[in-house]
Amino acid sequence: MNKEKILSLTDLTMSYGSKKILNGINLEVYKGQIIGYIGPNGAGKSTTVKIMLGLIEGYGGKIEIFGEDIAKGDFSYKGKIGYVPETAEVYDNLTACEFLTFTGELYGLSSENSEKKAFELMKEFGLEAAFHQRLSSFSKGMRQKVLIISSLLHDPDLLFFDEPLSGLDANSVMIIKEILAQLAAQGKTIFYSSHIMEVVEKISSRIILLVEGKVVADGTFEELQEQSAEGTLEEIFNQITGFTEHKQIAERFVGLVSEGSAHD
């Protein structure tokens, strides 16, 4: 394993009023790792990522990215980061060309270079015909591809992806998974948060499970399997989080759906 440390969290805590969201997270992430960052809703996954991106302040503990303490206020590290949020706002009135060129310029690329690179990347996704169309006309999957391109235009060293496959068809999912694998092979570090356990299981070199703001499991999929009696990541996840009622809930739910239906 490459021992070049890309980011470290030391006793990271975060509270909103009296509610504690993060309860002392300690984490070291190394170059070329694909981190599958998973946990139930409300576990603190998005909060962790937003703190690392400098979008949320008021946290406790220490965060170092590329060896620099982000609390010191030098935001140059952000130029080496790409981010796809779970729910992203795009400028509907802009064309894909305008949006991506603008994004590239924000990261220091020239307008000409931004536009040329954006067009070539859109072409690889089969979207070249939509390059000069307004984003308001794009489907969810098309928007997602534009967001993924916008996160990669400036060739970042560290990527934060929060549900990046949302709205994508099966072929596109295969392409994105392969892109992530090849980026990691180049030495890029990827922080990947998703509820789709099957994808996390397949692409991650390391899986971190967060429950109630604490890291409760950290290792490769094989290591997590050894520590658990269960087989798939979804089953391991359910065992560790103590959630074993899905079948009973589903049975009750379907029973209620069937009750007093028009077919009776």
Results as ranks from 00 to 15, higher is better:
residue 154 H to S: 11
residue 124 E to I: 07
residue 251 E to W: 01
residue 173 V to G: 01
residue 233 L to C: 00
residue 214 K to C: 12
residue 120 E to T: 03
residue 112 E to V: 13
residue 122 M to F: 08
residue 249 I to D: 12
residue 157 D to E: 15
residue 175 I to A: 04
residue 158 L to V: 04
residue 135 L to A: 07
residue 117 K to E: 14
residue 239 Q to F: 09
residue 189 T to N: 08
residue 202 K to E: 13
residue 189 T to C: 13
residue 134 R to S: 14
residue 153 L to R: 07
residue 126 G to N: 10
residue 135 L to I: 14
residue 160 F to E: 00
residue 192 Y to G: 10
residue 216 V to R: 12
residue 112 E to A: 03
residue 169 D to T: 09
residue 128 E to V: 09
residue 239 Q to V: 00
residue 253 F to W: 15
residue 204 S to K: 10
residue 213 G to E: 06
residue 178 E to W: 01
residue 165 L to D: 12
residue 183 L to Q: 03
residue 113 N to I: 08
residue 210 L to Q: 10
residue 160 F to K: 01
residue 250 A to W: 03
residue 186 Q to N: 02
residue 228 S to K: 12
residue 223 E to L: 06
residue 116 K to L: 01
residue 150 S to P: 00
residue 218 D to S: 04
residue 220 T to D: 02
residue 171 N to S: 10
residue 140 K to V: 02
residue 149 I to C: 02
residue 138 F to R: 05
residue 244 T to R: 13
residue 151 S to L: 08
residue 165 L to E: 14
residue 224 L to H: 00
residue 232 T to K: 01
residue 242 G to C: 06
residue 186 Q to P: 01
residue 190 I to Q: 11
residue 234 E to F: 13
residue 163 E to G: 08
residue 239 Q to G: 05
residue 222 E to H: 06
residue 219 G to V: 10
residue 112 E to P: 00
residue 222 E to G: 00
residue 247 K to L: 15
residue 117 K to H: 11
residue 187 G to C: 06
residue 247 K to S: 10
residue 161 F to L: 15
residue 114 S to C: 13
residue 211 V to D: 15
residue 200 V to L: 04
residue 130 A to P: 03
residue 115 E to W: 03
residue 224 L to K: 02
residue 230 E to V: 08
residue 249 I to E: 06
residue 201 E to F: 05
residue 236 I to V: 03
residue 228 S to I: 05
residue 191 F to V: 11
residue 159 L to W: 02
residue 125 F to V: 07
residue 183 L to E: 03
residue 186 Q to K: 11
residue 216 V to A: 05
residue 159 L to S: 06
residue 187 G to R: 05
residue 248 Q to F: 01
residue 143 R to W: 01
residue 118 A to M: 12
residue 195 H to S: 07
residue 137 S to I: 03
residue 212 E to V: 05
residue 195 H to F: 10
residue 175 I to K: 13
residue 166 S to D: 05
residue 150 S to Y: 09
residue 175 I to W: 02
residue 238 N to G: 02
residue 174 M to K: 14
residue 181 A to K: 13
residue 187 G to V: 04
residue 132 H to G: 02
residue 241 T to F: 00
residue 162 D to G: 07
residue 196 I to W: 07
residue 156 P to S: 03
residue 139 S to M: 08
residue 250 A to N: 10
residue 241 T to C: 09
residue 179 I to W: 11
residue 193 S to I: 09
residue 238 N to R: 14
residue 223 E to V: 00
residue 139 S to Y: 14
residue 206 R to H: 15
residue 188 K to F: 04
residue 184 A to I: 04
residue 180 L to D: 09
residue 186 Q to M: 05
residue 146 V to G: 05
residue 251 E to Q: 12
residue 217 A to Q: 04
residue 206 R to W: 08
residue 192 Y to H: 04
residue 142 M to K: 05
residue 213 G to M: 08
residue 219 G to D: 02
residue 223 E to T: 08
residue 146 V to Q: 00
residue 247 K to H: 15
residue 251 E to L: 13
residue 220 T to S: 04
residue 163 E to Y: 07
residue 161 F to G: 00
residue 174 M to I: 11
residue 172 S to A: 15
residue 209 L to Y: 12
residue 167 G to Y: 15
residue 246 H to P: 00
residue 114 S to D: 12
residue 147 L to D: 05
residue 119 F to G: 03
